[in-house]
Amino acid sequence: ALLGPNGAGKTTLVLHLNGILSGGAGTVTVAGLPVDKRNMAEIRRRVGIVFQDPDDQLFMPTVREDVAFGPAAAGLKGAELEARVDRALGLVGMAAFKDRPPHHLSFGQRRRVAVATVLAMEPEILVLDEPSSNLDPASRRELADILRSLDVTVLMVTHDLPYALELCPRALILSDGVIAADGPTGGLLSDEALMRAHRLELPFGFDPRSVTSGT
């Protein structure tokens, strides 16, 4: 999990991971590859980003067309494309909705479809920006179960500290664009001085020592 107060640079870092933004100085490396024009296609195959607002990613008339858009642009056709779409929707529990217009779905369902659009590209790293925001408790739980089931590396940017603790065994705290702490999520969240120094607060009464961190 990537944690930190507003303005720490979390979203800026995420947008560098697959070249949406490019740095003015220094380098960004993903899986040993510098994020530059030469490697951009491979980087974007490996790193998929799910934005905070699913409506930023859903723009086609049907769920199926949204999920198919990326693989089709990459050259998949016919039965192979349909299989990729069906698999991605199955992973997020939305296969029964593939012929629906996205705007007819609930917010939580649209977020799951947005995840499917990225999974359809079969990334090695799945990056999620505030995945639990604006979700009701049931949708929050459903998404957590989906994320646990995926066989990919997950990087979650979130202010939802209990969600980070539940799903992510490791966390980094970013402050003013610099990594201020890196360690087991439970340990960081239990360090009251560290939390205060970086303007992070747990919900009232929540004890991170009472939760087994994600694996």
Rank of each mutant, 00 (worst) to 15 (best):
I125V: 15
E42K: 11
D53A: 11
T185N: 08
M94L: 08
M40P: 07
L188P: 05
R45S: 14
D182T: 12
V115G: 03
L58N: 09
A88P: 08
A41N: 13
T158K: 06
A31R: 15
D36H: 11
A88R: 02
T212S: 14
L135D: 04
D55P: 03
I20F: 12
P203W: 08
L167C: 11
V47L: 10
A1P: 12
S139N: 15
A83H: 01
R84T: 07
G214K: 05
R196E: 13
L119V: 08
A138T: 14
D136A: 09
G78F: 05
V178N: 10
A31E: 15
R110K: 15
N39S: 04
E201L: 11
D176T: 03
P162H: 06
R196M: 09
D55C: 02
L81N: 01
N6V: 12
G75Q: 13
V157Y: 03
G177Q: 10
E192M: 04
P101W: 02
D86M: 03
H16L: 14
G108N: 10
D176I: 00
I43V: 15
S213A: 13
A41R: 15
E80P: 00
L2Y: 04
V63R: 08
G90W: 00
L172T: 09
L172G: 01
V157W: 04
T215A: 11
R110V: 06
A144C: 10
T29A: 07
L17F: 09
V157N: 04
L135Y: 02
A74W: 08
V92C: 00
K98W: 01
